[in-house]
C-alpha cells in the first residue's frame, strides 16, 4: 500500500465503525477525535479491524500513535507496505 492507500484504508475502517460521520474533509495532523466523534471503544474497533483485515498487531502501548491520520500512516506504513488495500464501506 502507498501512503495514500493507507489513508484510504483507515478511512474505510472508520466509515464501517462510524457510518454517520463525514470523512471527506479529515485533516491529516489534527487528532481524529477532535474532528469526528470517536470514543475509546471506537479506537479499539479500529485496532481489531486492522488485525482482522491486514493481520497487523497494534499493542496497547502504541494506541497513541494512531491519534491522527498522519500518525496512522507513519506508524502503519512499514506494517502495511506489502499488504493490499481492502475496501468495504467506501467501495464504488
Amino acid at each position: 500500500m502507498t501512503r495514500d492507500e493507507i489513508v484510504l484504508a483507515i478511512k474505510d475502517i472508520i466509515a464501517t465503525i462510524a457510518p454517520d460521520e463525514e470523512l471527506g474533509g479529515l485533516e491529516m495532523e489534527v487528532r481524529l477525535r477532535d474532528q469526528i466523534e470517536l470514543d475509546s471503544m471506537d479506537f479499539l474497533d479500529i485496532v481489531m479491524e486492522l488485525r482482522k483485515r491486514y493481520g497487523v498487531q497494534v499493542p496497547e502501548e502504541d494506541y497513541m500513535q494512531l491519534a491522527t491520520l498522519k500518525g496512522c500512516v507513519d506508524y502503519l506504513g512499514p506494517k502495511l507496505e506489502s499488504k493490499a488495500l481492502v475496501l468495504t464501506a467506501l467501495k464504488g
Partner: peptide, 16 residues
Amino acid sequence: ANYGVITANKVDLFLR
C-alpha cells in the same frame, strides 16, 4: 458488555 469486547481484543491477540 464493553469490557467483554476489550478483553476479547486481548484474547484474540493472544490466540493469534
